[in-house]
């Protein structure tokens, strides 16, 4: 199972919480201090995108963030329940610019070397990982 797992309703105000938790767990897992800003930003982008997909598709359900500590990598999965991604965007509500979605993905792929974006029947999944240092972590 995940080291830490979050589930939150698809509202913009919870994205910050996800960023803070992800950065805290990543730090503890041994992700280098210089990379924590990237982790924070990438998780924020993935969650913002998920919130946007839910809102544009008028989808219920939640966003799941799994923070998984492995021996050599720190893995983050952000899953939405906004459907298969084929929902047309009526462009209303929080995100007025459909370009923001593409911009968010551009930021993630620009930042994170190991990233995978997939889409299933229930929703999308973004998987990202970062190396962890093998040295013991000072708390």
């Amino acid at each position: 199972m995940a080291t830490v797992e979050l589930r939150f309703s698809a509202l913009p105000e919870h994205v910050r919480t996800a960023r803070l938790v992800a950065a805290a767990v990543a730090r503890r897992a041994g992700v280098d201090e210089s990379v924590l800003d990237e982790v924070r930003l990438a998780v924020g982008e993935a969650c913002s995108r998920a919130v946007g997909l839910h809102q544009r598709g008028d989808a219920h359900g939640a966003i799941r963030v799994a923070l998984i500590e492995q021996e050599k990598r720190f893995l983050i999965e952000v899953a939405d329940e906004a459907g298969d991604g084929s929902v047309p965007s009526p462009v209303s509500g929080a995100s007025a610019d459909p370009g923001e979605d593409a911009l968010g993905l551009a930021v993630i792929t620009g930042l994170v070397e190991d990233v995978e974006v997939t889409n299933g029947g229930e929703g999308g999944l973004i998987r990202m990982s970062w190396p962890v240092s093998t040295a013991p972590v000072a708390v």
């Binding site: 610019d97 911009l103 968010g104 930021v107």
Partner: peptide
């Protein structure tokens, strides 16, 4: 302290 793509979108707008 923090800026993401939503913020970038607003600046472009």
């Amino acid at each position: 302290d923090f800026l993401d793509s939503t913020g970038l979108g607003v600046l472009v707008g």
